[in-house]
Design a protein around this nucleic acid. Structure first.
Lengths: 233, 233
DNA sequence: ACCTGAACACCGTTCAAGT
DNA sequence: ACCTGAACACCGTTCAAGT
Protein backbone atom coordinates (compact mmCIF):
# COMPACT_ATOMS: atom_id res chain seq x y z
CA UNK A 1 0.00 0.00 0.00
CA UNK A 2 1.67 3.29 -1.06
CA UNK A 3 1.93 6.01 1.53
CA UNK A 4 1.37 9.64 0.54
CA UNK A 5 1.76 11.72 3.66
CA UNK A 6 0.70 15.01 2.10
CA UNK A 7 -2.61 13.59 0.89
CA UNK A 8 -4.00 13.39 4.40
CA UNK A 9 -5.12 16.99 5.08
CA UNK A 10 -6.45 17.43 1.54
CA UNK A 11 -8.55 14.29 1.81
CA UNK A 12 -10.15 15.73 4.91
CA UNK A 13 -12.03 18.53 3.22
CA UNK A 14 -12.57 16.69 -0.03
CA UNK A 15 -14.07 13.30 0.73
CA UNK A 16 -15.37 12.05 -2.61
CA UNK A 17 -19.13 12.02 -3.06
CA UNK A 18 -20.96 8.75 -3.24
CA UNK A 19 -24.59 7.68 -3.37
CA UNK A 20 -24.42 6.59 0.24
CA UNK A 21 -22.86 9.85 1.41
CA UNK A 22 -25.47 11.86 -0.49
CA UNK A 23 -28.35 9.87 0.97
CA UNK A 24 -27.04 10.01 4.53
CA UNK A 25 -26.61 13.77 4.26
CA UNK A 26 -30.17 13.97 2.94
CA UNK A 27 -31.54 12.07 5.94
CA UNK A 28 -29.63 14.33 8.31
CA UNK A 29 -30.91 17.43 6.51
CA UNK A 30 -34.52 16.22 6.67
CA UNK A 31 -34.18 15.22 10.33
CA UNK A 32 -32.80 18.62 11.32
CA UNK A 33 -34.67 21.05 9.07
CA UNK A 34 -37.65 19.15 7.69
CA UNK A 35 -38.19 17.58 4.32
CA UNK A 36 -39.13 20.93 2.78
CA UNK A 37 -35.55 22.07 3.34
CA UNK A 38 -34.31 19.11 1.33
CA UNK A 39 -33.48 20.68 -2.03
CA UNK A 40 -30.76 19.57 -4.36
CA UNK A 41 -29.00 22.91 -3.91
CA UNK A 42 -29.10 22.83 -0.13
CA UNK A 43 -28.08 19.19 -0.04
CA UNK A 44 -25.06 19.90 -2.22
CA UNK A 45 -24.13 22.86 -0.03
CA UNK A 46 -24.13 20.64 3.07
CA UNK A 47 -21.78 18.30 1.24
CA UNK A 48 -19.47 21.08 0.12
CA UNK A 49 -20.29 20.52 -3.54
CA UNK A 50 -22.36 22.01 -6.31
CA UNK A 51 -25.94 20.88 -6.93
CA UNK A 52 -25.07 19.45 -10.32
CA UNK A 53 -22.43 17.16 -8.85
CA UNK A 54 -25.12 15.17 -7.10
CA UNK A 55 -26.44 13.91 -10.42
CA UNK A 56 -23.36 11.74 -10.83
CA UNK A 57 -24.49 9.68 -7.83
CA UNK A 58 -28.28 9.87 -7.86
CA UNK A 59 -30.61 9.88 -10.84
CA UNK A 60 -32.77 12.80 -9.73
CA UNK A 61 -34.59 14.14 -6.71
CA UNK A 62 -37.13 11.31 -6.73
CA UNK A 63 -34.23 8.90 -6.46
CA UNK A 64 -33.04 10.79 -3.36
CA UNK A 65 -36.48 10.59 -1.77
CA UNK A 66 -36.80 6.87 -2.47
CA UNK A 67 -33.25 6.41 -1.24
CA UNK A 68 -33.74 8.06 2.14
CA UNK A 69 -36.96 6.09 2.68
CA UNK A 70 -35.06 2.89 2.01
CA UNK A 71 -32.42 4.03 4.50
CA UNK A 72 -35.11 4.51 7.15
CA UNK A 73 -36.71 1.19 6.31
CA UNK A 74 -33.31 -0.47 6.62
CA UNK A 75 -32.90 1.09 10.04
CA UNK A 76 -36.30 -0.31 11.04
CA UNK A 77 -35.57 -3.73 9.64
CA UNK A 78 -32.17 -4.03 11.30
CA UNK A 79 -33.40 -2.76 14.66
CA UNK A 80 -36.29 -5.18 14.60
CA UNK A 81 -34.26 -8.11 13.37
CA UNK A 82 -31.90 -7.77 16.36
CA UNK A 83 -34.84 -7.69 18.72
CA UNK A 84 -36.12 -11.18 19.28
CA UNK A 85 -35.82 -14.81 18.42
CA UNK A 86 -39.22 -15.48 16.92
CA UNK A 87 -41.58 -17.55 19.00
CA UNK A 88 -44.10 -20.07 17.75
CA UNK A 89 -47.78 -20.49 18.52
CA UNK A 90 -49.73 -17.84 20.38
CA UNK A 91 -46.53 -15.84 20.98
CA UNK A 92 -46.73 -14.59 17.40
CA UNK A 93 -48.91 -11.71 18.57
CA UNK A 94 -46.45 -10.46 21.15
CA UNK A 95 -43.57 -10.72 18.68
CA UNK A 96 -45.41 -8.80 15.95
CA UNK A 97 -46.60 -6.21 18.43
CA UNK A 98 -43.09 -5.62 19.68
CA UNK A 99 -41.68 -5.24 16.18
CA UNK A 100 -44.32 -2.72 15.20
CA UNK A 101 -43.89 -0.63 18.32
CA UNK A 102 -40.14 -0.66 17.70
CA UNK A 103 -40.70 0.48 14.13
CA UNK A 104 -42.72 3.33 15.58
CA UNK A 105 -39.82 4.33 17.82
CA UNK A 106 -37.48 4.48 14.85
CA UNK A 107 -39.95 6.63 12.92
CA UNK A 108 -40.20 9.10 15.78
CA UNK A 109 -36.58 9.94 15.02
CA UNK A 110 -37.51 10.65 11.38
CA UNK A 111 -40.82 12.51 11.65
CA UNK A 112 -40.82 13.42 7.94
CA UNK A 113 -40.80 9.75 6.89
CA UNK A 114 -44.49 8.77 7.24
CA UNK A 115 -45.78 11.53 4.96
CA UNK A 116 -43.09 10.67 2.43
CA UNK A 117 -43.90 6.95 2.58
CA UNK A 118 -47.42 7.83 1.55
CA UNK A 119 -46.30 10.05 -1.32
CA UNK A 120 -43.79 7.68 -2.92
CA UNK A 121 -45.86 4.76 -4.15
CA UNK A 122 -43.31 2.01 -4.71
CA UNK A 123 -42.12 0.13 -1.63
CA UNK A 124 -38.35 -0.21 -1.58
CA UNK A 125 -36.45 -3.45 -0.93
CA UNK A 126 -35.96 -2.77 2.80
CA UNK A 127 -39.70 -2.29 3.35
CA UNK A 128 -40.37 -5.54 1.54
CA UNK A 129 -37.81 -7.39 3.65
CA UNK A 130 -39.42 -6.01 6.79
CA UNK A 131 -42.85 -7.22 5.68
CA UNK A 132 -41.39 -10.59 4.82
CA UNK A 133 -40.18 -10.85 8.41
CA UNK A 134 -43.63 -10.01 9.78
CA UNK A 135 -45.21 -12.59 7.54
CA UNK A 136 -42.69 -15.12 8.78
CA UNK A 137 -43.72 -14.50 12.40
CA UNK A 138 -47.36 -14.99 11.46
CA UNK A 139 -46.56 -18.21 9.65
CA UNK A 140 -44.86 -19.53 12.77
CA UNK A 141 -48.00 -18.52 14.63
CA UNK A 142 -50.08 -20.81 12.43
CA UNK A 143 -51.30 -18.34 9.79
CA UNK A 144 -52.19 -19.61 6.34
CA UNK A 145 -50.63 -17.61 3.52
CA UNK A 146 -54.08 -16.33 2.69
CA UNK A 147 -54.72 -14.98 6.19
CA UNK A 148 -51.18 -13.60 6.39
CA UNK A 149 -51.78 -11.76 3.14
CA UNK A 150 -54.98 -10.21 4.43
CA UNK A 151 -53.23 -9.39 7.69
CA UNK A 152 -50.50 -7.37 5.97
CA UNK A 153 -53.14 -5.38 4.12
CA UNK A 154 -55.18 -4.84 7.28
CA UNK A 155 -52.18 -3.56 9.18
CA UNK A 156 -51.13 -1.38 6.29
CA UNK A 157 -48.98 1.56 7.33
CA UNK A 158 -49.48 0.62 10.99
CA UNK A 159 -47.09 -2.27 10.42
CA UNK A 160 -44.35 0.29 9.73
CA UNK A 161 -45.20 2.15 12.89
CA UNK A 162 -47.45 4.95 11.77
CA UNK A 163 -51.05 5.67 10.99
CA UNK A 164 -52.39 8.96 9.80
CA UNK A 165 -53.56 11.29 12.53
CA UNK A 166 -56.56 13.15 11.18
CA UNK A 167 -57.12 15.43 14.12
CA UNK A 168 -54.18 17.53 15.09
CA UNK A 169 -55.15 18.90 18.49
CA UNK A 170 -52.03 21.05 18.67
CA UNK A 171 -53.25 22.94 15.58
CA UNK A 172 -56.55 23.76 17.22
CA UNK A 173 -55.17 26.34 19.61
CA UNK A 174 -57.32 26.76 22.73
CA UNK A 175 -58.53 24.18 25.18
CA UNK A 176 -60.99 21.46 24.28
CA UNK A 177 -63.80 23.17 26.13
CA UNK A 178 -63.62 26.28 23.94
CA UNK A 179 -65.88 25.02 21.17
CA UNK A 180 -67.74 27.91 19.52
CA UNK A 181 -71.46 27.61 20.40
CA UNK A 182 -72.72 27.68 16.79
CA UNK A 183 -70.21 24.96 15.95
CA UNK A 184 -71.29 22.91 18.96
CA UNK A 185 -74.80 22.67 17.52
CA UNK A 186 -73.44 21.16 14.33
CA UNK A 187 -71.15 18.76 16.19
CA UNK A 188 -73.25 17.43 19.05
CA UNK A 189 -71.36 14.18 19.48
CA UNK A 190 -67.82 15.46 19.32
CA UNK A 191 -68.81 18.32 21.60
CA UNK A 192 -70.31 15.89 24.07
CA UNK A 193 -67.23 13.72 23.95
CA UNK A 194 -64.87 16.62 24.61
CA UNK A 195 -67.06 17.87 27.45
CA UNK A 196 -67.13 14.47 29.13
CA UNK A 197 -63.40 13.93 28.85
CA UNK A 198 -62.77 17.47 30.15
CA UNK A 199 -65.03 16.63 33.09
CA UNK A 200 -63.28 13.36 33.89
CA UNK A 201 -59.82 14.86 33.61
CA UNK A 202 -59.83 18.66 33.99
CA UNK A 203 -56.13 18.87 33.10
CA UNK A 204 -56.63 17.36 29.66
CA UNK A 205 -57.16 20.44 27.56
CA UNK A 206 -54.82 21.02 24.67
CA UNK A 207 -53.49 17.94 22.94
CA UNK A 208 -55.42 15.53 25.10
CA UNK A 209 -55.10 12.62 22.64
CA UNK A 210 -52.33 10.26 23.68
CA UNK A 211 -50.93 9.29 20.28
CA UNK A 212 -48.99 6.33 21.60
CA UNK A 213 -51.99 4.92 23.47
CA UNK A 214 -54.29 5.38 20.47
CA UNK A 215 -51.77 3.72 18.17
CA UNK A 216 -51.58 0.74 20.51
CA UNK A 217 -55.36 0.55 20.83
CA UNK A 218 -55.81 0.32 17.06
CA UNK A 219 -52.94 -2.12 16.75
CA UNK A 220 -54.29 -4.43 19.46
CA UNK A 221 -57.75 -4.30 17.93
CA UNK A 222 -56.35 -5.64 14.68
CA UNK A 223 -53.99 -8.17 16.27
CA UNK A 224 -56.76 -9.54 18.53
CA UNK A 225 -59.06 -9.87 15.53
CA UNK A 226 -56.39 -11.75 13.59
CA UNK A 227 -55.66 -14.03 16.50
CA UNK A 228 -59.32 -14.98 16.61
CA UNK A 229 -59.27 -15.84 12.89
CA UNK A 230 -55.97 -17.70 13.12
CA UNK A 231 -57.31 -21.19 13.59
CA UNK A 232 -60.64 -20.92 11.85
CA UNK A 233 -59.41 -20.26 8.31
CA UNK B 1 -85.64 43.90 -10.78
CA UNK B 2 -83.96 46.01 -13.52
CA UNK B 3 -83.45 44.39 -16.89
CA UNK B 4 -80.25 45.08 -18.85
CA UNK B 5 -80.51 43.09 -22.08
CA UNK B 6 -77.06 43.90 -23.42
CA UNK B 7 -75.30 42.58 -20.29
CA UNK B 8 -76.09 39.00 -21.16
CA UNK B 9 -73.45 38.12 -23.79
CA UNK B 10 -70.67 39.99 -21.99
CA UNK B 11 -71.39 38.18 -18.75
CA UNK B 12 -70.90 34.91 -20.55
CA UNK B 13 -67.19 35.16 -21.15
CA UNK B 14 -66.42 37.15 -18.01
CA UNK B 15 -68.03 35.45 -15.06
CA UNK B 16 -66.48 37.09 -12.01
CA UNK B 17 -64.07 34.99 -10.04
CA UNK B 18 -64.99 33.81 -6.58
CA UNK B 19 -63.46 31.52 -4.00
CA UNK B 20 -65.99 28.83 -4.83
CA UNK B 21 -65.36 29.08 -8.57
CA UNK B 22 -61.61 28.91 -8.02
CA UNK B 23 -61.87 25.85 -5.77
CA UNK B 24 -64.25 24.01 -8.08
CA UNK B 25 -61.95 24.62 -11.02
CA UNK B 26 -59.07 23.33 -8.89
CA UNK B 27 -60.92 20.09 -8.13
CA UNK B 28 -61.71 19.59 -11.82
CA UNK B 29 -58.10 20.26 -12.76
CA UNK B 30 -56.81 17.76 -10.19
CA UNK B 31 -59.40 15.15 -11.23
CA UNK B 32 -58.49 15.44 -14.90
CA UNK B 33 -54.74 16.03 -14.87
CA UNK B 34 -53.54 15.07 -11.41
CA UNK B 35 -52.63 17.22 -8.46
CA UNK B 36 -49.16 17.91 -9.86
CA UNK B 37 -50.81 19.84 -12.71
CA UNK B 38 -52.53 22.07 -10.16
CA UNK B 39 -50.38 25.21 -10.25
CA UNK B 40 -51.64 28.71 -9.67
CA UNK B 41 -50.74 29.64 -13.25
CA UNK B 42 -52.50 26.66 -14.80
CA UNK B 43 -55.53 27.13 -12.56
CA UNK B 44 -55.83 30.79 -13.58
CA UNK B 45 -55.52 29.81 -17.23
CA UNK B 46 -58.42 27.37 -16.91
CA UNK B 47 -60.47 30.21 -15.44
CA UNK B 48 -59.51 32.65 -18.19
CA UNK B 49 -57.65 34.90 -15.77
CA UNK B 50 -54.12 35.70 -14.70
CA UNK B 51 -52.44 33.84 -11.85
CA UNK B 52 -52.25 36.94 -9.70
CA UNK B 53 -56.01 37.45 -9.85
CA UNK B 54 -56.53 34.29 -7.81
CA UNK B 55 -54.96 35.91 -4.77
CA UNK B 56 -58.01 38.14 -4.40
CA UNK B 57 -60.08 35.06 -3.61
CA UNK B 58 -57.71 32.64 -1.93
CA UNK B 59 -54.90 33.40 0.48
CA UNK B 60 -52.27 31.25 -1.21
CA UNK B 61 -51.76 27.82 -2.68
CA UNK B 62 -52.06 26.09 0.68
CA UNK B 63 -55.47 27.67 1.02
CA UNK B 64 -56.42 26.16 -2.35
CA UNK B 65 -55.26 22.71 -1.26
CA UNK B 66 -57.14 22.88 2.04
CA UNK B 67 -60.15 24.22 0.14
CA UNK B 68 -60.39 21.40 -2.36
CA UNK B 69 -60.00 18.83 0.42
CA UNK B 70 -62.89 20.44 2.25
CA UNK B 71 -64.91 20.29 -0.96
CA UNK B 72 -64.26 16.55 -1.24
CA UNK B 73 -65.05 16.04 2.46
CA UNK B 74 -68.30 17.94 1.95
CA UNK B 75 -69.16 15.66 -0.95
CA UNK B 76 -68.51 12.64 1.29
CA UNK B 77 -70.49 14.06 4.18
CA UNK B 78 -73.51 14.99 2.05
CA UNK B 79 -73.55 11.68 0.18
CA UNK B 80 -73.36 9.75 3.42
CA UNK B 81 -75.88 11.91 5.23
CA UNK B 82 -78.47 11.18 2.52
CA UNK B 83 -77.79 7.48 2.82
CA UNK B 84 -79.58 6.09 5.81
CA UNK B 85 -81.67 6.82 8.83
CA UNK B 86 -79.38 5.70 11.62
CA UNK B 87 -80.30 2.53 13.41
CA UNK B 88 -79.82 1.78 17.09
CA UNK B 89 -78.25 -1.21 18.84
CA UNK B 90 -76.27 -3.79 16.94
CA UNK B 91 -77.18 -2.13 13.61
CA UNK B 92 -74.53 0.53 14.31
CA UNK B 93 -71.93 -1.64 12.66
CA UNK B 94 -73.82 -2.01 9.41
CA UNK B 95 -74.54 1.74 9.32
CA UNK B 96 -70.91 2.70 9.93
CA UNK B 97 -69.70 0.14 7.45
CA UNK B 98 -72.01 1.48 4.75
CA UNK B 99 -70.92 5.07 5.34
CA UNK B 100 -67.25 4.20 5.11
CA UNK B 101 -67.65 2.17 1.93
CA UNK B 102 -69.61 5.07 0.45
CA UNK B 103 -66.82 7.47 1.41
CA UNK B 104 -64.49 5.16 -0.44
CA UNK B 105 -66.64 5.37 -3.56
CA UNK B 106 -66.51 9.15 -3.48
CA UNK B 107 -62.74 9.12 -3.09
CA UNK B 108 -62.35 6.87 -6.11
CA UNK B 109 -63.62 9.84 -8.13
CA UNK B 110 -60.86 12.03 -6.64
CA UNK B 111 -57.83 9.76 -6.61
CA UNK B 112 -55.47 12.61 -5.67
CA UNK B 113 -57.35 13.28 -2.41
CA UNK B 114 -55.95 10.57 -0.07
CA UNK B 115 -52.31 11.58 -0.55
CA UNK B 116 -53.29 15.21 -0.05
CA UNK B 117 -55.28 14.44 3.09
CA UNK B 118 -52.12 12.97 4.54
CA UNK B 119 -49.99 15.97 3.60
CA UNK B 120 -52.27 18.73 4.92
CA UNK B 121 -52.32 18.21 8.65
CA UNK B 122 -55.37 20.18 9.78
CA UNK B 123 -58.74 18.53 9.27
CA UNK B 124 -61.24 20.90 7.71
CA UNK B 125 -64.77 21.52 9.01
CA UNK B 126 -66.38 19.03 6.62
CA UNK B 127 -64.12 16.22 7.80
CA UNK B 128 -64.96 17.04 11.40
CA UNK B 129 -68.70 17.03 10.65
CA UNK B 130 -68.32 13.64 8.97
CA UNK B 131 -66.51 12.21 12.00
CA UNK B 132 -69.17 13.70 14.27
CA UNK B 133 -71.77 11.73 12.32
CA UNK B 134 -69.81 8.50 12.70
CA UNK B 135 -69.46 9.09 16.42
CA UNK B 136 -73.22 9.67 16.60
CA UNK B 137 -73.91 6.28 15.03
CA UNK B 138 -71.62 4.64 17.53
CA UNK B 139 -73.30 6.42 20.43
CA UNK B 140 -76.65 5.08 19.24
CA UNK B 141 -75.01 1.68 19.16
CA UNK B 142 -74.22 1.93 22.85
CA UNK B 143 -70.63 3.24 22.72
CA UNK B 144 -69.28 5.24 25.62
CA UNK B 145 -67.59 8.48 24.59
CA UNK B 146 -64.30 6.93 25.62
CA UNK B 147 -64.71 3.90 23.38
CA UNK B 148 -66.01 6.09 20.54
CA UNK B 149 -62.92 8.22 20.82
CA UNK B 150 -60.63 5.23 20.62
CA UNK B 151 -62.71 3.91 17.72
CA UNK B 152 -62.20 7.05 15.64
CA UNK B 153 -58.47 6.83 16.20
CA UNK B 154 -58.40 3.12 15.38
CA UNK B 155 -60.27 3.65 12.14
CA UNK B 156 -58.09 6.61 11.22
CA UNK B 157 -57.98 7.32 7.53
CA UNK B 158 -60.00 4.19 6.87
CA UNK B 159 -63.06 6.06 8.16
CA UNK B 160 -62.69 8.45 5.23
CA UNK B 161 -62.48 5.58 2.79
CA UNK B 162 -58.81 5.05 2.23
CA UNK B 163 -55.82 3.34 3.74
CA UNK B 164 -52.33 3.48 2.41
CA UNK B 165 -51.41 0.72 0.01
CA UNK B 166 -47.78 -0.11 0.61
CA UNK B 167 -47.39 -2.63 -2.14
CA UNK B 168 -48.25 -1.39 -5.58
CA UNK B 169 -48.44 -4.55 -7.64
CA UNK B 170 -48.95 -2.59 -10.85
CA UNK B 171 -45.54 -0.97 -10.35
CA UNK B 172 -43.81 -4.31 -10.09
CA UNK B 173 -44.07 -5.16 -13.75
CA UNK B 174 -44.05 -8.88 -14.44
CA UNK B 175 -46.19 -11.64 -13.00
CA UNK B 176 -46.05 -12.68 -9.37
CA UNK B 177 -44.16 -15.86 -10.20
CA UNK B 178 -41.21 -13.96 -11.69
CA UNK B 179 -39.32 -13.39 -8.44
CA UNK B 180 -35.54 -13.24 -9.03
CA UNK B 181 -33.94 -16.32 -7.40
CA UNK B 182 -31.44 -14.36 -5.27
CA UNK B 183 -34.30 -12.18 -4.02
CA UNK B 184 -36.41 -15.24 -3.26
CA UNK B 185 -33.80 -16.41 -0.77
CA UNK B 186 -34.05 -13.15 1.12
CA UNK B 187 -37.85 -13.16 1.05
CA UNK B 188 -38.83 -16.75 1.80
CA UNK B 189 -42.25 -15.96 3.21
CA UNK B 190 -43.46 -13.49 0.60
CA UNK B 191 -42.11 -15.77 -2.10
CA UNK B 192 -43.97 -18.72 -0.62
CA UNK B 193 -47.15 -16.69 -0.38
CA UNK B 194 -46.98 -15.58 -4.00
CA UNK B 195 -46.23 -19.12 -5.15
CA UNK B 196 -49.18 -20.57 -3.27
CA UNK B 197 -51.62 -17.97 -4.52
CA UNK B 198 -50.33 -18.42 -8.07
CA UNK B 199 -50.89 -22.16 -7.67
CA UNK B 200 -54.44 -21.77 -6.33
CA UNK B 201 -55.39 -19.26 -9.01
CA UNK B 202 -53.12 -19.43 -12.08
CA UNK B 203 -54.78 -16.35 -13.60
CA UNK B 204 -53.81 -14.10 -10.70
CA UNK B 205 -50.51 -12.72 -11.89
CA UNK B 206 -50.12 -8.99 -12.13
CA UNK B 207 -52.05 -6.92 -9.65
CA UNK B 208 -53.58 -9.87 -7.87
CA UNK B 209 -54.46 -7.92 -4.74
CA UNK B 210 -58.13 -6.99 -4.69
CA UNK B 211 -57.97 -3.53 -3.13
CA UNK B 212 -61.67 -3.38 -2.38
CA UNK B 213 -61.69 -6.80 -0.71
CA UNK B 214 -58.59 -5.98 1.35
CA UNK B 215 -60.06 -2.67 2.43
CA UNK B 216 -63.23 -4.44 3.58
CA UNK B 217 -61.24 -7.12 5.38
CA UNK B 218 -59.35 -4.55 7.44
CA UNK B 219 -62.49 -2.55 8.06
CA UNK B 220 -64.45 -5.56 9.27
CA UNK B 221 -61.59 -6.63 11.50
CA UNK B 222 -61.75 -3.30 13.29
CA UNK B 223 -65.54 -3.08 13.39
CA UNK B 224 -65.86 -6.63 14.76
CA UNK B 225 -63.26 -5.86 17.40
CA UNK B 226 -65.15 -2.71 18.44
CA UNK B 227 -68.44 -4.55 18.56
CA UNK B 228 -66.91 -7.02 20.98
CA UNK B 229 -65.74 -4.19 23.24
CA UNK B 230 -69.02 -2.29 22.97
CA UNK B 231 -70.69 -3.62 26.12
CA UNK B 232 -67.68 -4.46 28.21
CA UNK B 233 -66.31 -0.95 28.71
C1' DA C 1 -14.24 9.59 -14.00
C1' DC C 2 -15.95 13.17 -11.58
C1' DC C 3 -17.14 17.88 -10.95
C1' DT C 4 -18.79 22.59 -12.33
C1' DG C 5 -20.78 27.23 -14.22
C1' DA C 6 -24.18 29.09 -16.99
C1' DA C 7 -28.55 28.60 -18.66
C1' DC C 8 -33.51 26.93 -19.22
C1' DA C 9 -38.09 26.25 -17.99
C1' DC C 10 -40.63 26.28 -14.53
C1' DC C 11 -42.62 27.55 -9.55
C1' DG C 12 -45.30 30.73 -5.72
C1' DT C 13 -45.65 35.28 -4.53
C1' DT C 14 -44.89 40.71 -3.99
C1' DC C 15 -45.65 45.08 -5.67
C1' DA C 16 -47.02 48.98 -8.10
C1' DA C 17 -50.05 50.11 -11.44
C1' DG C 18 -54.15 50.03 -13.99
C1' DT C 19 -59.74 50.04 -14.48
C1' DA D 1 -63.32 46.40 -5.73
C1' DC D 2 -61.11 43.59 -8.71
C1' DC D 3 -57.68 42.51 -12.02
C1' DT D 4 -52.99 42.63 -14.22
C1' DG D 5 -47.88 42.93 -15.97
C1' DA D 6 -43.33 42.91 -14.57
C1' DA D 7 -40.26 41.31 -11.37
C1' DC D 8 -38.13 38.47 -7.47
C1' DA D 9 -36.42 34.54 -5.30
C1' DC D 10 -36.55 30.27 -5.61
C1' DC D 11 -36.91 25.21 -7.80
C1' DG D 12 -35.09 20.70 -10.65
C1' DT D 13 -32.53 19.71 -14.48
C1' DT D 14 -29.72 19.96 -19.21
C1' DC D 15 -25.64 20.90 -21.42
C1' DA D 16 -21.15 21.98 -22.71
C1' DA D 17 -17.02 22.60 -20.66
C1' DG D 18 -13.42 21.91 -17.50
C1' DT D 19 -9.81 18.69 -14.60
Amino acid sequence: MPVSAHAEPEARYRIPLSRDRVLRAAVRLADEHGVEALTMRRLAEDLGAEAMSLYHHVANKGDVLDGILDLVATEIHETVEALDTPAAGAAWKQAVRRRILTAREVLLRHPWAPALFQTRSAAGPAVIRYYDGLLGLMRQGGFSYDLGHHALHALGSRALGFAQELFDPAAGGGSGAEVPPEMAEQLPHLTGMIAEIAHDDPDSTLGWCDDQAEFEFGLDLILDGLDRLRGSR
